[in-house]
């Protein structure tokens, strides 16, 4: 038992208290400002991607334009047409507008005037990720999510204070294509879902109506999750609610629903929600084929 020097206990008490107070302060600030910050970011990213999509569409006036709206699942799950080696799908041009799913994505689309742009350069088809319309993520109140909030706030402090967007890393146009596979020991999803009703998301209804009036075909797409996770996320009640929702959309805006027919194992995924390169290719091939049939 060596006679070593250790800080006196009051130092621990003081620094511990300071730490907790700081954490609480940051946390309160995070709760106050994160929401606005995320919307700001989502708007920025959506605007940025939209600009690219529009340019891309302009360059390929002759091809059939398809636009897809969604979250990072879309970013990672759907390939750009250039990624296919063969020329089968060269008559389609894909424009992706995806934003990270921190908060209400649909609101960000409206905020970023995504639908206005769509109408300005109307594509033939607009694909919308079903998850954004059908579900909302239950607010998680676990310690870790709260800590995440605070960390998010600190990380984005520069942006929050309006100091600088200069170093902000905008997303890649085609989204990330990742080679890795999820280890199968990572079970149990951490997200929990709540089903939405048709009336729930009324902000999007006028927009859908506008698209419809402009003669744009709207299709809701389901991007697969690992089969084991799907089982955990869905139940009979939710499926029933989903069915009712889809019927309502069909009735009001003639919107179709495409769901991927096969079940995919873990090997096709990078994590619990995102497809990896292998999965992206498999799914995109199916999607493009179906689109081609639709266009004809």
């Amino acid at each position: 038992m060596p006679d070593q020097y250790y800080p006196p206990l009051r130092i621990w008490v003081i620094s511990g208290t300071v730490f907790i107070v700081l954490f609480l302060v940051v946390h309160v600030l995070a709760l106050r400002y994160n929401h606005a910050l995320v919307q700001k970011k989502q708007k920025q990213e959506a605007t940025y991607l939209l600009k690219h999509v529009v340019e891309h569409f302009k360059k390929n006036e002759s091809k059939t334009k398809v636009m897809v709206l969604g979250s990072s699942i879309v970013g990672q799950g759907i390939a750009c047409e250039e990624e296919f080696d063969d020329t089968t799908f060269r008559n389609i041009v894909m424009g992706k507008v995806y934003v990270p799913a921190y908060y209400k994505i649909v609101e960000s689309w409206i905020d970023a005037k995504v639908f206005d742009s769509i109408l300005k350069y109307p594509p033939a088809v607009v694909l919308i990720e079903i998850d954004q319309l059908a579900y909302k993520i239950k607010e998680d109140t676990s310690f870790f999510d709260r800590a995440q909030e605070s960390i998010f706030f600190i990380k984005n402090l520069k942006i929050t204070t309006g100091y600088s967007w200069a170093n902000y890393k905008m997303p890649a146009y085609c989204g990330r294509s990742i080679n890795e596979t999820i280890p199968d020991s990572m079970l149990a999803p951490t997200i929990s879902w709540e089903a939405r009703t048709f009336e729930d998301l009324c902000v999007i209804h006028p927009e859908l109506k506008r698209l419809r009036e402009a003669g744009i075909r709207i299709i809701l797409i389901q991007i697969p999750r690992p089969a084991e996770i799907e089982v955990l996320l869905h139940d009979e009640k939710k499926d029933k609610q989903l069915q009712a929702l889809l019927t309502a959309y069909k009735l009001h805006y003639q919107i179709d629903y495409w769901s991927y027919p096969n079940k995919l194992p873990y090997a096709y995924f990078y994590d619990q929600g995102h497809l990896n390169k292998k999965g992206r290719t498999t799914y995109s091939k199916w999607l493009y084929t179906k689109l081609q049939k639709e266009i004809r």
Binding site: Q4, Y5, Y6, P7, P8, L9, W12
Partner: peptide
Amino acid sequence: DNSLFSEGLE
């Protein structure tokens, strides 16, 4: 023991 406790926290 204060110093042992402090060592633990460290």
